[in-house]
Amino acid sequence: MVKAVAGRAMEPVLQVENINKHFGAVHALRNASLAVWPGEVVALIGDNGAGKSTLVNVLTGVLRPDSGTMIFAGERVSFSSPQEARAAGIETVYQDLAIAPHLDAVANIFLGRELTMPGLAGHLGFLDNGKMRRETEEQLTRLRVRIPKLGRRLVTLSGGQRQGVAVARAVMWASKIVFMDEPTAALGVAQTEMVLDLIREVRNTGIPVVFISHNMPNVFEVADRIVVLRLGEVVAELDPRTASIDDAVLAMTGARRRDARGEGAVVG
């Protein structure tokens, strides 16, 4: 609670209002609104087709909304590409592990942002592997991720370690906010715990994390706030400390909100 109250005293990092998005006849987002404050973990939940991924894709520049306003770091923005969103400090971790498995952790973390040697060698494209490695080590230490051998190709690591690298990459470059689309969907129990720990570590650095998950126990374990989407609308906002999993499921499936037991259920 302390965290959330302290958070509300500040400006939200990201505030979107009345976002609409159509795919042909399908109204995928209906006046969706969302605000994210520094240092909080927000879980986006909803049934299949509720618009969670569409919302994240709009917020990360993958999709352009049909209407709505987006205020990011105090300024009105509209991203026309994921690159623009990344340049603004927004990073995304995808469910399907957007890593290059034949490269090592350092190469993956710096992929597309390689550091080159100073001077002429740099202009010729020579990589400064030593510097990239040192910065990776610092980052992984800060996040408490231990990768056995940084020089090993990711294909030889476990799924959790690979997702750890993907999260570390996002966090290393995200100066403002991190989105995660089902970051634990492909992982086992122990590996999922590791990613949840990582989410907390990221939040503790002050950078908010917005994550999509179907796994209710995970959501209630790590989220500071739960936003429920149904048929493209934000229908409820739950406090995981007071609401129950039943409340969340009821909100997702569209049972009348009044029926939801527990005072934690807040009409969105």
Partner: peptide, 19 residues
């Protein structure tokens, strides 16, 4: 509580040996 600090490093399995 979600905001609890986790002092333990995330657990990692033993690294697989080259086949």
């Amino acid at each position: 509580m979600a905001s609890t600090q986790t002092p333990v490093a995330p657990s990692l399995e033993a690294e697989p040996k080259p086949t």
